[in-house]
Nucleic acid binder design. Structure first.
Length: 200
DNA sequence: CTGGGGATCGAG
DNA sequence: TCGATCCCCAGG
């Protein structure tokens, strides 16, 4: 179980998003370990991406974690009830990140069911808000280093063959960057999120 | 100080 | 299709 090093996250953001497919998100809560295989990601390209929180170097208390170096977390709260987990990429001059959108539950499934208050395996981590609930990820885990053993980290996985590429999800459709093809997922994996804002 | 929006989810 | 729900931030 090899932990991904910060070097992994300091490459091209879209490439990082693609290479994160098949890797494992590990959440350690006391003695309890939760593991999920990453099956869906989205890249957010910083200052030039109008859908990115750090568009045009927008800098606030909320977005400042994006200005950390690659390998840190960026967790934010949205819609009054959900958290989303990102991994920061690039160096400090590139406030870019990859949103972790879905996981395939691997270990600690009974705990995930408890946190989610859902029994169906497919309901546990098939969305960015769901997986944060299943893994008990809140704002307390914002701006944390993910490249060492601790409460939250990512380990290397096996290479994935069937990758798909699509436009991103849940964004204001009047912005052209909403249509950029920066969503990566594993083809035919039942734990990939269901998109509602079907484009075209 | 205040009001409006949000990288979502789930019920109906 | 729509309502929940609340933190954060821009604007006054």
């Amino acid at each position: 179980m090899e932990i991904l090093k910060s070097r992994f996250f300091k490459k091209n953001t879209a490439l990082v998003a693609e290479k994160l497919l098949g890797c494992y998100l590990v959440r350690q809560i006391g003695n309890q370990k939760l593991i999920g295989r990453i099956v869906e990601t989205e890249a957010y390209l910083g200052v030039k991406d109008s859908c990115c929180h750090s568009f045009q170097n927008h800098f606030t208390d909320k977005t400042k974690a994006m200005y950390l170096e690659g390998g840190f977390s960026y967790v934010y709260f949205t819609y009054g009830m959900h958290y989303c987990l990102n991994v920061v990429t690039g160096d400090k001059t590139q406030p870019e990140a990859v949103l972790i959108r879905a996981l395939e539950p691997i270990e600690g499934i009974s705990k995930m069911k408890k946190y989610r208050k859902k029994q169906n395996l497919k309901d546990l981590c098939s969305g960015p808000g769901k997986l944060c609930q299943a893994f008990s990820i809140t704002k307390k885990l914002n701006a944390k280093k993910l490249t060492k053993k601790g409460e939250l980290f990512i380990t290397k996985g096996r290479a994935v063959k069937d990758k798909e590429l699509d436009s991103r999800v849940g964004l204001p459709l009047h912005k052209d960057s909403a249509y950029w093809f920066l969503r990566f997922y594993i083809k035919n994996n039942p734990h990939v999120s269901v998109r509602k804002n079907q484009i075209c």
